[in-house]
Amino acid sequence: MTLTRRDVEGIALLARLEISEQELPVYVESLSRIVGFIDQLSTATTEGVEPMAHPLEDQVQTLRDDQVTEVDHRDRYQGNAPLVAAGLYLVPKVIE
């Protein structure tokens, strides 16, 4: 199966990736090849097979106690942020 330019533009938007005009054909070509490659999976017979989401099948979720263990490190964490003011992370205006 091959992907079209429109397909790749749609995927890039969903993934929030800017892809330039020059790059686009390169991705169309390589993603088409990858999709062709993973299409091999259709040759496997998987009727009645349980999907495997995790390598250790018999492990189950461990739970933690409901305790507040964290203290405020806001200023330190915000040291990594591109733009903050009044303790808030700033982004271009969100329109609801």
Binding site: L88, Y89, L90, P92, K93, V94
Partner: peptide
């Protein structure tokens, strides 16, 4: 938060 931050929104 959208108030008083000009062209920005603030995230809490």
């Amino acid at each position: 938060l959208h108030e008083g931050l000009g062209k920005q929104s603030g995230i809490d």
